[in-house]
């Protein structure tokens, strides 16, 4: 009987899903993705997760438990060590499979967790993933699956690069991709910006070379990939955007440092910036009011 693997729509999903979708399908594995984040998922995760962890991790757990409620017994939870050469990401990703296993019954469930480690380059990472694939298909087939998935992933990344119309009011939105792209968690920040007549761009819509170039100008290396991308985007966009919005997750460790660096840099450069904390509370008044006031501010100063 063919086993269906549950893919939680959280954390790394937003970074890599097109890759996994291709790769797992080529390995002959059927997948089902959890629904977009909703209140029930957030509540489920927040009730079960340990107090100390960050909101996105709680939400991820909510996605896993939602899949489990649907009768899924195999879960795709990669162990991500690093996604760029000589860089780290949040250590929660490293321990994610262990964290998730803890909340699932030991008997009858399987947590599938290939190791993703780009710290020593693409080749080393590819070897590891092909080795993972070889558990399901013969080795050469796994290698082919990997490369076709990698190509699909690259073209997906390429398609997201967006040109910025300089004459329009432009807001750069920075933050972890799993916050920026999850419109439930961020309470529709992107949509609200569009509604207010602003064009919103994220660091994921900018070419990687562009981000690295900006990051090189920092006084010191930023060793978290997401932080480097955010700060690099900011550096390169100074003078090209009207304002910067930073989305930060409640209780996120890396954000506590990166958001402060973003704010300092923006202040120094005289670019209006707004920090929005995303947490479990469902009240929209907080984000709505701040966003509205921020866009007002940009519009009014542009009119001058």
């Amino acid at each position: 009987m063919e086993q269906v693997i549950g893919v939680p729509r959280g954390l790394d999903y937003y970074l890599f899903y097109p890759f996994w979708q291709h790769f797992l399908a080529s390995l002959g594995l059927g997948t089902v993705v959890s629904p977009p984040t909703n209140k029930a998922i957030v509540d489920l995760g927040a009730t079960h997760a340990v107090d100390g962890c960050c909101l996105p991790l709680k939400v991820y757990l909510g996605h896993v438990l939602t899949l489990a409620e649907q009768g899924i017994t195999a879960f795709f939870v990669p162990r991500i060590v690093g996604i760029a050469r000589r860089e780290y990401i949040c250590p929660y990703f490293l321990g994610l499979p262990d964290f998730i296993s803890h909340y699932l019954p030991r008997k009858g469930t399987e947590v599938i967790s290939p190791v993703v480690d780009f710290r020593r380059g693409e080749l080393a990472a590819a070897k590891e993933l092909i080795r993972f694939g070889a558990r399901y298909v013969p080795w050469p087939e796994a290698a082919r699956a990997y490369y076709s998935a990698w190509l699909a992933f690259r073209s997906w990344r390429q398609r997201q690069i967006t040109a910025v119309a300089p004459e329009r009011l432009t807001v750069l939105v920075l933050g972890h991709r799993y916050l920026v792209d999850d419109s439930f968690l961020n309470q529709g920040v992107m949509g609200r910006l569009h509604q207010a007549g602003a064009q919103a761009i994220t660091s994921y819509q900018l070419p990687e070379a562009f981000l690295s170039k900006g990051a090189k100008r920092l006084g010191k290396r930023m060793f978290w990939t997401s932080g480097r991308q955010s700060l690099g985007a900011l550096e390169e966009c100074l003078g090209k955007v009207d304002g910067v919005i930073t989305l930060a997750a409640f209780a996120c460790g890396t954000d506590s440092l990166v958001t402060d660096l973003i704010q300092r840099r923006a202040r120094q450069a005289g670019v209006p910036n707004l920090l929005l904390y995303v947490d479990e509370q469902t009240g929209e008044a907080g984000i709505g009011t701040r966003l509205e006031a921020f866009v007002d501010m940009l519009v009014r100063s542009k009119q001058r």
């Binding site: 202040r267 209006p272 904390y277 701040r290 006031a293 501010m297 009014r300 100063s301």
Partner: peptide, 12 residues
């Protein structure tokens, strides 16, 4: 210069 330049509200 007569326009809002920056603002902050109390957080949580």
């Amino acid at each position: 210069n007569g326009v809002v330049h920056d603002f902050a509200m109390n957080t949580i």
